[in-house]
Computed example of a mutant assay.
Amino acid sequence: MKTEPYTLPHTECWSILSQGNQQLYKIFVSVPDSPAPEDGFPLIYVLDGNSIFASFTESMNLQTRRGEITGKKPHIIVGIGYETTEPFNDSRYFDYTFSPEIDFLSYHPIDRDFPPGGGGSLFLSFIEKQLKPQIKQKYEVNTEKQTIVGHSLGGLFVLSALFTSSSSFQYYVASSPSIHWNEDFLNTAKQKFMETEPKAKLLITSGELERDHFSQMNEKAKKLNDELQTHVSAKFDSEFLEFPGEDHTTVLLPLINKTILFMNDIKQQIK
């Protein structure tokens, strides 16, 4: 019996070297198998692309088949990953944090060394100045409807990007954000952010079973959303959602489904 490798249809991947931190990134791209709208396809940028790009792509393809009925529009999906066959790479510690300080170690010491952090601004600059221009050149895109999704440290990056560069995207999805990692930086950036009038939508999510994490991940995420709710306006909105029965890993699949609704501006209550 002859066998051959399986690849996702209408996807491709290529590598790009960051000019800022000399990191080599593997870029995964899924393009809808349909004509582009007049204003181009909306975009979703997915952090930790090695681990969840394929799941996002399969879900998007399945759920947008009858978009004229469901209101779910096909998006170009851009997964940002690393040159590895593993789901995650330690370079994410540097890329997804905006401060080299690890705040939680002051109250929850861990007997291990962590990779260096604090490269978030360089990583955001890479996305803005290198990756986005290449995506715009290669594909028909709508730069006025862009989403970024990150989980855990990636969720921290999404919040930090929103607070420091709110015009970079229109939809921000922070899944189980590791607020405890760079909490001081995030609080300072949040205060400056709340003095502005941003035009963006934010979704913060977590799994119910993450309530027991030492970091108080869910509590801090909900508290952050409550604070941001005081800043809700016609241009900015935030939402917090806790998925019943899900933990830090299993939360990713319901997150994908909710994200597709969120970036299509479809309101749906999860009970």
Results as ranks from 00 to 15, higher is better:
Gln130Arg: 07
Lys223Phe: 14
Ile260Val: 02
Val158Glu: 09
Ser34Gly: 12
Gly118Asp: 15
Ser55His: 12
Pro177Trp: 04
Phe53Ile: 10
Leu8Phe: 08
Gly118Tyr: 14
Phe185Gln: 09
His108Pro: 05
Ile270Pro: 00
His231Lys: 14
Ala221Ile: 09
Leu241Cys: 11
Thr7Ser: 15
Leu162Gly: 08
Ile179Arg: 03
Gly81Arg: 04
His231Cys: 13
Ile266Gln: 10
Gln229Arg: 13
Asp212Cys: 12
Ile135Glu: 15
Gln22Leu: 09
Ser30Asn: 15
Leu156Ser: 07
Leu228His: 12
Ile110Tyr: 15
Asn182Leu: 06
Phe214Asn: 10
Trp14Gly: 05
Asp113His: 11
Asp226Tyr: 01
Leu252Glu: 04
Gly119Trp: 07
Ile80Gln: 03
Leu203Val: 04
Tyr107Ile: 07
Gly71Lys: 14
Gln191Ser: 12
Ile69Leu: 14
Leu159Val: 08
Thr147Asn: 09
Ile148Leu: 14
Ile52Ser: 02
Leu202Ser: 08
Lys199Val: 10
Gly117Thr: 06
Tyr96Phe: 11
Asn61Trp: 00
Thr164Cys: 10
Ser15Ala: 12
Gln269Met: 01
Gln269Phe: 04
Gly119Ile: 08
Val31Asp: 07
Ile16Leu: 05
Glu227Arg: 11
Ala200Pro: 09
Leu255Arg: 02
Pro133Leu: 09
Glu86Gly: 01
Lys26Asn: 14
Gly49Trp: 01
Tyr25Leu: 11
Leu241Ile: 12
Asp90Pro: 13
Phe262Asn: 04
Thr188Leu: 11
Leu17Phe: 08
Glu195Cys: 09
Ile102Gln: 05
